[in-house]
Simulated assay, not measured.
Amino acid sequence: MKRGRRPLLAMLALLALLAATTAQASQVYRWTDAQGRAHYADRIEGAAAADADRIVLPAGPTVVARLRVEPDAQGAQAWVDNLLAGPIEVMLHADGGAVASDPPLPARGTVPALSGGLLARIGPGTPRLRVTAVPGTPNARPRDVEYAWPLQTANVRIQQAWGGAFSHGDEENRHAVDFAVPSGTAVLAARDGVVMQAEAGFPEASPGEDEDELVARANFIRILHDDGTMALYAHLQTGGVLVRLGQHVRRGQVIGLSGNTGRSTAPHLHFVVQANRGMRLASVPFRMFGPQGVLRFGAAQAGGG
């Protein structure tokens, strides 16, 4: 690959960036710091602003990371650009046989928010490289925190609690709770944090759509907490994200609107606290104070998802 193609590679890597937090077109700024590291953000201030490239992006599904291959005299450098406003853990793989690299593949590492990280130096050849990524850092240490009621309602109706048979059987959602509320209900931040990831562009499902495909089509907000855990607020309505990537939010602040997107049988808010446990997400038990007092989620409840 010729050096002259580097700007094209960088542009291609950006085309599938997260389109901020609405169904409208958005923009992302890219700039390089004094150490040569690439950074991405939805806005930029200060001295770096003069050197930033502005790229307008269409709305689209969330992308966690992009592989960026930079040729050099020994072969190539494999970089991973983190497109989220929080850390991610990544692993670089080579398909189709052994590849000379330093370190050997698969190579694993953590990339800070909205920045790029060098994963490996690749020897001569044309290996087929791919990246897997998981939000969060494996160094998360969940604290015992009481979460606030995440809805602007005075009543509690639980469709599905911890261990629910419909969709809460996997590790990522074992301690998730589905709160039944009408579409358009205000969703509140249950804890202070930073908007790490969001999606607002998916429509509600049409009759007859494949259920497995619908799993990845739920609008959501992921908020990163100061102990490394992340709260996921899912099944929001189309355009139902009211915060932006990288924004600091406070407990009780309105962040979105509930809906019925994704694999959902009725309008509700899917709430779960997760932590990265080493290239995998696991749900974390949590305490929550509701409109009438402390909520109990230990007993699985039947119902829709």
Rank of each mutant, 00 (worst) to 15 (best):
H175S: 05
P58S: 10
W79M: 00
A49E: 02
L245R: 13
G116P: 07
R37D: 08
G60M: 11
R121P: 01
T153H: 04
G96P: 03
L18S: 15
R128A: 11
V215A: 06
V177F: 07
Y29M: 11
S26V: 04
L245W: 13
A234R: 15
I55H: 08
V241T: 13
V111A: 02
S26K: 02
A140G: 05
H225W: 08
A41K: 01
F289Y: 05
D144K: 13
A65F: 03
A120V: 06
R296A: 04
G97T: 02
A282E: 14
T238A: 15
L105G: 12
A52P: 04
A10F: 10
P112Y: 02
T21Q: 13
A20E: 15
R54E: 07
T132M: 05
Y40L: 14
P150R: 09
L12P: 08
V284S: 02
D81S: 08
A234F: 14
Y29A: 06
Q274W: 03
T261C: 11
A186Q: 08
E209K: 00
P207G: 03
Q152M: 05
A98F: 15
V215D: 05
A140Q: 03
D210K: 06
P106G: 06
R6S: 07
D72T: 00
P182G: 04
G36V: 01
I55E: 05
L281H: 10
L67A: 05
N276A: 08
L269A: 10
A19N: 13
P87F: 00
P142A: 03
A186T: 06
A34T: 10
R30N: 11
I221H: 06
P142Q: 02
F297S: 00
P138H: 02
G163M: 00
L214V: 07
V63I: 08
L188T: 03
A231R: 09
V273Y: 09
G305L: 04
L129Q: 00
G304Y: 01
R244C: 10
A275C: 03
A218H: 03
F297L: 03
R250V: 15
W149G: 05
F289Q: 05
D144V: 14
G109K: 06
H39G: 06
R250I: 15
E171C: 07
G228I: 11
R5I: 12
G75L: 02
I122L: 12
G117A: 12
F286A: 07
R287Y: 04
G246N: 11
G305Q: 00
A161M: 07
P182D: 04
L281M: 15
G60S: 06
R222C: 04
S183L: 12
E172R: 11
V273R: 13
Q152V: 03
D53A: 11
P71T: 06
P112S: 08
F286R: 01
H248M: 15
G304C: 01
S115A: 14
F271I: 07
I221F: 09
R217K: 12
V156F: 07
E204Q: 14
